[in-house]
Design a protein around this nucleic acid. Sequence first.
DNA 1: GTCTATATTTGGATAGAC
DNA 2: GTCTATCCAAATATAGAC
Lengths: 189, 189
Amino acid sequence: MRGVDKRRRLTAAAAQVLHRQGVERTTIADIAKTADVPVGNVYYYFKTKDELVQAALSEHEGSLAELTAELDKLPDPLDRLKALVEAWVSQRDTAARYGCPTGTLAAELDKRADGTLDREVGRVIRVLLDWAEDQFRALGLPDPGDLAVTLVAGYQGMSLLTNALRDPDIMTREGDRLIRWLDTLTSGT
Amino acid sequence: MRGVDKRRRLTAAAAQVLHRQGVERTTIADIAKTADVPVGNVYYYFKTKDELVQAALSEHEGSLAELTAELDKLPDPLDRLKALVEAWVSQRDTAARYGCPTGTLAAELDKRADGTLDREVGRVIRVLLDWAEDQFRALGLPDPGDLAVTLVAGYQGMSLLTNALRDPDIMTREGDRLIRWLDTLTSGT
DNA sequence: GTCTATATTTGGATAGAC
DNA sequence: GTCTATCCAAATATAGAC
């Protein structure tokens, strides 16, 4: 089953290279080279470039599922949310260089006239929003959906500024602010 | 002076089309067509595509300068900041379709290995941050720089989610939240 | 399943007539 | 200053040998 192995390598390479270079500036050859697969052979596994983008998106969705599964082991929903923020902040150097993998992909795909892939990326973002909403609801807070949007928007905003200004410290400071915000929400005053 | 006119039309067209389609998916022909200028003639005014991107960026910077100049007419810095948020929210339909002009441009340009244009876009974002910082400082608040980052990150975050989910209502709700946040900052408790 | 060679298209950029 | 025709490079995708 060497084929399965190559498919996985191509998927992993696509996720990494597309994040770093963006969709439009990445060539099939770039991905093939990173995966150490000859260019022509790529088409045996993925018929078009868009299928590689789709595979990369699924890879990011998988990482997100892994992360939330890990967080779900924590008993307290508030701790889960705080740990999520900490996980984001721990990625600050990558964010400073390349931004949030899903966020930058969404921004790029949303520019397309063809609305197939950008509906997909919207769905992945919704998975994160839904998970966060569940935590806020478990805490008994009002408007858990709005709170989830505020949290994720906070993350996307700090990622973009961190990236645009190439300054990981923004991520640290804004992460601290989000943690404090989560505390005030639940301090019941 | 027909030349000046064409240059301006090309600049305006570049700003609009690059915002809608993104840099990489926009061809010189797209911009030329929108500006109603023959393709070959474009190169008389702009030697490369990157010069057109630079021109579009300057156009956005000009719009920002116009907006802040207008806001500066308001006597109270808090009113200025609130009016800024309201100006953002009023653009919610455009944001839902194409995102924030400067933010999406920054995300795209930051993917480049060549760091010329992405330093430029960072500078434009800094202009906005500096203006906001001035307002927070005028209000006598501590850490005005951090507050400016939080405000602009809030804008970029809500723009990205609004765009990715194609939902202008997110912009309305998050805008309201930013206004309430500005109020709590200054309510002096 | 793998890989090389190549067909095809697109788009940035230029030459040169007017 | 204006515009057409075209060059050329890059990149997606395919053909077909192994």
